[in-house]
């Protein structure tokens, strides 16, 4: 059976391929605390695979460092992502992958908002509501098939 892709020919962006962070002297000093910042969060999600293509979210420009806001002291993180096309039906799945990756990789003290970037998706509000509803996320992850798909997308991210 032929599987039709929602976006068969996405635009591929050039990426650095690895973290842009450079190890500074303060990061090697035990006495200095390194606060969470947007680059650290971006490094966690940049290599998540797209559900449709063997490409990362960074290569498809779905996630960008400057679309992440972090307030370490207020325990708040907001991640905005950009679907490749406005009618992308994979947007919820991509958001779910980001959510699971951050749940597994960040301390529990953070409140994490994951949102579709404003004006980049037809069903922006519905997707945002779904992604930030704890119960719906938990329910989705009880679906073994869905969890398997999420795990496949996250396999490259570690």
């Amino acid at each position: 059976m032929v599987q039709y892709k929602i976006n068969a020919n996405p635009k591929i962006y050039e990426t650095a391929g690895k973290s842009q962070r450079i190890l500074t002297e303060t990061e090697q000093d035990e006495d200095c605390r390194d606060d969470f910042d947007s680059q650290e969060i971006f490094d966690l999600i940049r290599n998540i695979n797209d559900p449709e293509h063997p490409l990362t979210l960074e290569q498809l420009n779905v996630t960008q460092c400057n679309h992440i806001a972090v307030d370490d002291s207020a325990n708040y993180i907001r991640v905005e992502f950009t679907p490749t096309i406005p009618h992308c039906s994979m947007a919820t799945l991509i958001g779910l992958c980001i959510r699971v990756r951050l749940l597994r990789s960040l301390p529990e003290r953070f409140k994490i908002d994951i949102r579709v970037r404003e004006g980049t998706h037809q069903s922006e509000n519905a997707v945002n509501k779904q992604l930030n509803d704890k119960e719906r996320v938990a329910a989705a992850l009880e679906n073994k098939h869905l969890l398997e798909v999420v795990n496949q997308c996250l396999a490259t991210a570690a």
């Binding site: 990061e27 035990e30 966690l44 597994r104 990789s105 992850l141």
Partner: peptide, 28 residues
């Protein structure tokens, strides 16, 4: 995951995700 040093946190992320991925199904 909430270590004061970023280098430790990065290792913790890798480690924790490997233990998550150890199962065929995974769970939160």
């Amino acid at each position: 995951l909430d270590d004061r040093k970023r280098a430790v946190r990065q290792e913790a992320v890798v480690c924790r995700n490997k233990w998550f991925g150890a199962s065929s199904s995974g769970a939160l």
